[in-house]
Design a protein around this nucleic acid. Structure first.
Lengths: 128, 128
DNA sequence: ACTATTGTATTAGATGTTTAATACAATAGT
DNA sequence: ACTATTGTATTAAACATCTAATACAATAGT
């Protein structure tokens, strides 16, 4: 799995977003167990403390649940996940359109650019 | 003018993006003089050093030119500005689509969401 | 019962960002 | 020439982030 991190933004924050995405996309299904803090930290080439911070914050958001020694699990509440998915999507659309609007693009130009894109050919996160 | 800054990302970086937007949108036209470091810093409620960092970086990017005591000016090279505009737009579209794709939305759903938006009613940056 | 694995907490140091206060350098405008 | 305004540079302190090393707490699995 990809953990592409940038240096111009807090890492724990990026980790949170990436994990949210993995949950919303079903990569980590509802109720499923996710890897341990230490494993995830290694995956992402990040200090365990940093990963812990991301995970515990997502937990206080109600998205994850930790069971002391049995590990950490995605919430079973699918409506919660759907809610997050909608929230992320709406925020994304709004920010995108605002940006494009400020850059002077029209709706038609945007629709055009999107219909020309090929993102949807591959479902592995790779742009073909 | 709006200088809405968030705390989850370096301020100087956000300032750069906002200024780039002001230039690309024509709020600061090519060749025009922009306010002084101190003025801009006050506008944005930011330390002059932070604003200076944003401005001098934009200068090394070739977007601004400083004339010691006469002030700072937007480049006259309109092709440079157009290039930036395209770069910003492409990056924005790509990131947006990748995100929406990962969230599981189809092209049609996205096209739909965009056609339903009302961003273009008002040109002052306010969503009506 | 023991042990390995889990999440969690703590302390310290390195680094980057931001603010603050100040000073200098150059010149447009008078 | 003088002066105010410009960009620029420097130093210090406060703060957040990240890493590192380590330890503790709890329990599933044996």
């Amino acid at each position: 799995m990809s953990w592409k991190l940038q240096s111009d933004r807090p890492i724990y924050s990026q980790l949170m977003e990436l994990i949210e995405l993995k949950i919303c996309s079903g990569f980590y299904p509802p109720g499923s167990k996710i890897p341990s803090v230490r494993e995830l930290a290694q995956e992402a080439s990040v200090n365990p403390n940093t990963m812990q911070r991301a995970l515990s914050t997502l937990e206080s958001d109600g998205l994850l649940i930790s069971n002391r020694t049995s590990g950490r699990f995605v919430t079973n509440d699918e409506s919660e996940i759907l809610k997050l998915k909608k929230k992320l999507a709406e925020k994304n659309v709004a920010e995108f359109l605002q940006m494009m609007s400020k850059l002077g693009f029209t709706k038609d130009e945007i629709q055009n650019a999107i219909s020309k894109s090929y993102i949807w050919e591959d479902n592995n996160g790779n742009n073909t």
